[in-house]
Write a protein that binds this DNA or RNA. Structure first.
Length: 304
DNA sequence: CACTTGACCTGTCCGC
DNA sequence: TGCGGACAGGTCAAGT
């Protein structure tokens, strides 16, 4: 479930790993994962140099020196994993070891074995033989090659809300944007990428718990001061998650194939049946806005 | 406009 | 042991 912190972690990793590398080869075995015309790939991807990594909401952008960019969305189960030449051979040797370490549950351990594997959809090979794998078990994610200047005109990019961690995204703007959707449930609004970019199920649940707001509460029934608290808590949760390298529930790994450790700090997500750390009541899992939703029934009373 | 449902997919888990 | 079904949850399209 890559959300803003996970995509940001991948972006920072790739910043250190692939800038300056020259694309030498690209293969894909699933058209929808990389639905590009072969001519564009031949002309603007092959031989191009990676210049810069960017993130917008949950989308990752790799700018090339050909005036084209790769736009990547990991959706539910996407991974972007870089493998240097020697490292790949090492991993092949230690495949069995990996399962033992994974079983022990160390949060920063590698989750991927030898690549490519059966979830690999697109493989980029650089001139120095290092490789970048786009893995995606459920095939919801995608990679697109586009002229860089056209990215901002993509429909979903135009509609995307502001970046919550940018300095100019203030408490006032957050409250204003939420209140435009006064008749909607607050969790549905947080998950709406056109309101605020990058929030998904994990951080919606965590920030609503931190702000003591029930996720089904209609926005108009949440007092203004509570919306302000929600803003502060959302920012805190997102920053903390980036510091932890994101959340790994099942699939997510960073650019080096390592898991994120935020879920060790999560206070409600995947903690159903466990005690609320504030009041001791039992965390429950319900369905709100069509999603699995974790709440403390005592701390998060519904206003509606 | 708000909300729900289905579609896109695969892997895992649960009950029979 | 196998098998059907529910579930995981990001996003869009279609229907109420």
């Amino acid at each position: 479930m890559p959300e803003l912190p996970e995509v940001e972690t991948v972006k920072r990793g790739l910043d250190q790993l692939i800038v300056g590398k020259i694309v030498a080869d690209v293969t894909s075995d699933w058209v929808k994962s990389f639905p590009n015309a072969q001519t564009d790939v031949n002309q603007f991807l092959m031989g191009a140099t990676v210049q810069k990594l960017r993130r917008r909401g949950k989308a990752l952008i790799i700018d090339l020196n050909s005036k084209y960019s790769l736009v990547i969305h990991l959706k539910m189960t996407g991974q972007l994993v870089f493998v240097g030449q020697q490292k790949n051979e090492q991993k092949a040797k230690s495949k069995k070891q990996k399962e033992v370490r994974f079983g022990a549950g160390h949060p920063t351990d590698s989750l991927v074995g030898e690549l490519p594997d059966k979830s690999t959809r697109v493989t980029f090979t650089f001139k120095d033989k290092s490789r970048l794998f786009f893995n995606d078990q459920r095939k919801f994610g995608w990679v697109r090659l586009l002229p860089t200047i056209e990215i901002e005109n993509l429909d979903f990019m135009k509609k995307l809300g502001p970046e919550p961690l940018e300095n100019d995204f203030t408490n006032t703007k957050f409250v204003q944007r939420l209140q435009r959707r006064k008749n909607s449930g607050i969790k549905a609004v947080l998950l709406d990428q056109t309101v605020v970019a990058g929030v998904g199920n994990i951080y919606a649940d965590e920030s609503l718990y931190a702000a003591k707001i029930h996720p089904a509460t209609l926005v108009k029934d949440v007092p203004r001061n509570e919306l302000k608290v929600l803003f502060k808590e959302l920012i805190k949760v997102l920053r903390r998650a980036i510091e932890s390298g994101g959340s790994t529930d099942k699939n997510y790994v960073d650019a080096e194939g390592k898991k994120g450790s935020y879920l060790t700090f999560a206070r409600v997500f995947r903690r159903e049946g466990k005690a609320c750390e504030r009041c001791g009541d039992i965390i429950i899992k319900t369905k709100v806005a069509g999603r699995g939703t974790h709440t403390c029934p005592t701390c998060q009373r519904s206003h509606s």
